[in-house]
Simulated assay, not measured.
Amino acid sequence: MIRKRLLAFGLPMAWGAMAITYKLACPLAQQNGLGARVVTSAVFFAVGTGLILHVRRALLRELREVKKVAGVAQSVLLRPLPPRVDGLNVAAAQLSADRGAVIGGDLYEVIATEHGVRVVMGDVRGHGLGAVGTVAAVLGSFREAVHDEVDLACVLRRLERALGRHLRERARAEHPSAGGEPESPVAEEFVTVLLLEIRQDGEVRVLNCGHPWPYLLSGARAEPLTRAEPLPPLGPFPLPAELPAVRCGRLLPGETLFLHTDGVEDARDGHGRFFPLPAALAEAVAAGPVSPQSVLRAVLAGLLRHTGGRPADDVALLLLRNDRRHVVRQPPGEPVGHRAHRLT
């Protein structure tokens, strides 16, 4: 590191010393003739060009290093998901609306626990690097709470408390002169959150705070997992005293859940038309054979075509297919597939 810095400063200093030496010691530089002036100008032009090119290379090298460090930090925050989690085939992708950012305001995680595979997908208001701190607070809380809490509702309450702490700390950092506890930590800040639990028998339970519902891909069908009314997003209002989970039946072997953020359905083309996600999913499953990876590629390709390669908002996609071999017999009267009701 020291050697690199010496080289970085040494070369410009050597070029500057050469130019000064030429000006002071070279007899040609002391003459006022046209030829002498042309030579002197050429010498200083060459030295100036060399300095500019050197500075440019140094800045590009620093930029590459910064991007490398940022990429490593962001990949730790939104780490790549394993291809399989407890018998589930997993595929995911995320696109940031900010150029140069690996991640933005969307978040997701899939973790196998003793309570089942637990999944979070969320969307922080806004996008880009300004939302990364909120993403870190929510993901950090989720990764710890899913192992500690038996009830999915308790996991959600942990996320709410973590978000509240983060917003209060951010408000104090942004307005240190206010002192004390800010009345409104960060105005209009909120996070949509979808918590999903897939148990060993395939039973699916969901808590949804203002997030788009997943789609169930079964055979050649692509339908919403449920149409139940979601809770409000985290942030503006406290969670209600009762948090009934939505029970969505069982995810059978070969069936796939498609989770997404609203940046997918809200994406527009040059004429202002929204991206037709249901049609894109129907086309992807009709092409067959269906795999999380093939559906992910098809939807992403369609989305990029629709937006001209530049989505205006952050986009996150997550697919989970049940590849478990055993099938648990379903008790009579229990809902199947996408039909759902709330647990009391």
Rank of each mutant, 00 (worst) to 15 (best):
Leu107Lys: 09
Ala241Lys: 14
Ala287Met: 14
Leu207Gly: 01
Glu197Leu: 10
Leu28Pro: 00
Ser218Val: 05
Pro83Asn: 10
His127Cys: 07
Ser41Gly: 15
Pro236Arg: 13
Asp151Lys: 08
Gly164Asp: 15
Arg221Met: 11
Gly33Pro: 10
Arg158Thr: 08
Ala280Gly: 05
Val120Glu: 01
Ala340Glu: 01
Asn32Glu: 13
Ser177Thr: 11
Ala58Thr: 15
Cys154Thr: 03
Ala73Thr: 06
Arg199His: 00
Arg64His: 14
Pro335His: 02
Pro289Trp: 00
Met121Ile: 15
Arg170Ser: 13
Arg61Pro: 09
Pro212Thr: 00
Val150Met: 04
Asp313Lys: 05
Thr261Lys: 05
Leu129Glu: 05
Gly140Trp: 06
Arg250Trp: 03
Leu304Gly: 02
Val155Pro: 01
Leu216Asp: 01
Gly210Ile: 12
Ala101Gly: 07
Arg247Gln: 12
Arg165Lys: 11
Pro276Cys: 10
Gly130Trp: 01
Arg339Trp: 09
Leu51Met: 04
Arg158Pro: 08
Pro332Trp: 01
Val119His: 02
Gly235Val: 07
Ala36Thr: 01
His326Ile: 14
Ala58Asn: 15
Val120Ile: 14
His271Pro: 08
Leu81Gln: 08
Leu259Glu: 03
Leu252Glu: 12
Val138Glu: 00
Asp201Asn: 05
Val69Asp: 07
Leu95Asp: 06
Thr49Gly: 12
Val66Glu: 11
His338Ser: 11
Leu139Asp: 02
Arg170Glu: 12
Pro311Ala: 00
Val38Phe: 14
Gly337Ser: 06
Arg172Ala: 13
Pro230His: 07
Met1Gln: 09
Glu242Thr: 12
Gly126Met: 10
Glu65Gly: 14
Ala97Gln: 08
Glu265Lys: 15
Arg56Cys: 14
Thr256Trp: 08
Leu239Pro: 10
Val299Leu: 08
Leu303Glu: 04
Arg3Trp: 10
Ile111Phe: 02
Ala19Thr: 10
Arg325Lys: 09
Pro236Gln: 13
Leu107Met: 14
Gly100Asn: 09
Asn208Leu: 06
Leu281Cys: 02
Leu257Glu: 03
Asp201Cys: 00
Leu81Asn: 07
Gly140Ala: 09
Leu318Phe: 07
Leu343Met: 09
Val90Tyr: 07
